[in-house]
Amino acid sequence: MSSHVDGNALAGPLSEVFHTDMTTAVCCCDGCGETTTLASEMVYGAHGLVVRCRSCDDVLITIVETPERVVLSFPGVSSVSVERGAPSA
């Protein structure tokens, strides 16, 4: 992949961990305060994924998948808000 994509591409990897579709969740960037749906953020990488704030480019989330585990870290997210009862896909 020669260019970044957007948070829509996280739907599959995150479906392994969360039971609702996380791309419609609203994230608040700890760096600049930008608040938007995860689908609108920028995503880099192919094997490990790095999610960056669309506004200030800070790293919000990293996702590393191994055969046995999915490792999520949230270095730049101050909150994630998920609608109750949201469908899985």
Binding site: G7, N8, A11, G12, S15, D21, T23, T24, T37, A39, S40, A86, P87, A89
Partner: peptide, 9 residues
């Protein structure tokens, strides 16, 4: 395949 995925777009 895995899906359908994504409810935003």
């Amino acid at each position: 395949v895995r899906g359908p995925l994504g409810r935003w777009f």
